[in-house]
């Protein structure tokens, strides 16, 4: 039976990581920075290994410490990490430190003779299924791949503390500041989404999109160019292979052409509505209900009808 470890640079990601770990069977050891173990136990950890907190350290500096813990408790072992930007840096560094195979952005993970995980390739055109052959497997889990287990505050377990092992080469962090134009919205969990693409001519016109979203009690989403090229909406709102993969009941795509890289993020929605002025837009191949028309005319009319 493999030893299962979980680690995240974001506390909010532990519940789903612990659920992924539980699906692999066996005892689950949560590596946490600091001394707060209760949350990890309540979501299914059987052991918590506390790593000494120190604000001046970078998350990546913990790699030798984690590697030492994993090595000391033996193989086979699986390390599940949240697929955040730092998580991926930690995963690759562990890959070398532990001579382990690494798979990023896993949408599923299975045990057995080697750990097998799936992730999107070719911009979402296909899913790659890979198996780790090395004694240790390091997998970063995409957000939303697993439902957290029900929280149970009564659960307890063993607490272990690990000594910090300094990294051989270290990078100096001169400054850390909050990112501008970022938000904590999680449209991956939204039930309804109104999503806007480059059919929008100006940032001010977002008002009509927000109106429709509010009439539908929906979150606002978008295509990558609206968030990354235009910077009209926060990065957290763009849907697609490199953005958020939604699981909504309703996805309303406005002025979005429907490129595969976008649609792999939207396809998880139960019902897709689309408005596009080009009747040949690929989005209509992926939609349940489509209207060929101008969003500047259709969107305000839809809002008015829904408010009636």
């Amino acid at each position: 039976m493999s030893k299962i470890w979980v680690f995240s640079d974001m506390a909010s990601r532990y519940p789903e990581l612990l659920a992924a770990a539980a699906s692999l069977g066996g005892d689950v050891n949560a590596l946490v920075i600091g001394t707060d173990s209760a949350k990890a136990f309540s979501y299914g950890a059987t052991t918590v290994t506390q790593l000494p907190a120190d604000e001046s350290r970078m998350i990546e500096d913990y790699v030798p410490t984690i590697a030492k813990c994993v090595t000391a408790s033996g193989t086979p072992a699986v390390v599940l990490i949240s697929a955040t930007k730092r998580g991926k840096a930690v995963a690759a560094k562990l890959g070398i430190a532990l001579n382990a195979g690494v798979i990023n952005d896993a949408s599923s993970v299975k045990g057995g003779d080697g750990v097998t995980a799936t992730h999107m390739v070719f911009g979402g055109l296909a899913v790659g299924t890979e198996t780790v052959k090395s004694a240790v497997a390091v997998i970063t889990m995409g957000s939303g791949a697993f439902e957290p287990l029900p929280e149970d505050a009564a659960r307890k377990g063993d607490v272990v503390t690990a000594d910090f092992v300094p990294p051989p080469v270290s990078i100096k962090c001169l400054e850390r500041r909050a990112k501008q134009n970022s938000s904590s919205v999680d449209i991956g969990k939204a039930r309804r989404i109104v999503s806007i693409g480059r059919g929008l001519k100006a940032q001010e016109d977002l008002a009509m999109v927000r109106d429709l979203a509010s009439a539908l009690d929906a979150e606002v989403g978008c295509s990558r160019p609206i968030a990354e090229g235009e910077n009209w909406l926060e990065r957290e709102r763009y849907v697609g292979v490199t953005g958020v993969q939604v699981k909504a009941d309703l996805y309303v795509a406005l002025g979005i052409s429907g490129q595969i890289q976008h649609m792999v993020g939207a396809n998880g929605a139960k019902t897709i509505f689309a408005v596009n002025k080009d009747k040949n837009a690929p989005i209509f191949q992926y939609a349940d209900f489509g209207l060929v028309g101008d969003i500047y005319k259709v969107v305000p009319a839809m809002t008015a009808l829904l408010r009636k």
Binding site: M10, M58, T84, K85, R86, I171, K172, C173, L174, E175, R176, R177, A178, K179, S182, S184, E236
Partner: peptide, 9 residues
């Protein structure tokens, strides 16, 4: 990063 910017030497 997701919510932060680090300046590194």
């Amino acid at each position: 990063l997701e919510t932060e910017v680090e300046v590194l030497e």
